[in-house]
């Protein structure tokens, strides 16, 4: 019981449900609003680029840092893993091959240094 009431645990559940709420709200938005709702073109255009911006803002700083600091060197496993992943993704467009290659690059550097 004490575990369930731990503020840290409750907070994590609140975050999880918050993310779930964004799923429901965005996916049902226009299906719920009915006939008259329409997006202004400039908003629709902006929405189109939201995933790229969000992914870039998250992934790039994450990949550039290792042990809590920016590390632009070949001994940063995430940087090497990401580079290998992109090199494999571009010609193959395969999610499976990309994940395998990225993890392989990451693991080689992690074990090497």
């Amino acid at each position: 019981m004490s575990a369930a009431l731990d503020p840290q645990v409750l907070w994590t559940w609140a975050a999880i449900l918050g993310v779930a709420a964004t799923t429901v709200i965005t996916r049902c938005s226009f299906l719920a609003l009915g006939e008259r709702a329409k997006l202004p073109p400039v908003v629709e255009r902006g929405l189109r680029y939201a995933p790229a911006a969000a992914l870039a803002a998250l992934v790039v700083p994450d990949v550039l840092s290792w042990d809590g600091a920016t590390r632009l060197a070949l001994d940063n496993p995430k940087l090497v893993g990401a580079a290998v992943a992109i090199a494999v993704f571009l010609p193959t467009r395969s999610m499976l091959a990309t994940i395998a290659a990225g993890m392989a690059g990451y693991t080689v550097v992690r074990l090497w240094f």
Binding site: T26, R27, S29, L39, L47, R48, A50, P51, A53, A54
Partner: peptide, 8 residues
């Protein structure tokens, strides 16, 4: 932001 594409 990640889910906004679903509005479209």
């Amino acid at each position: 932001m990640m889910n906004l594409r679903f509005v479209i």
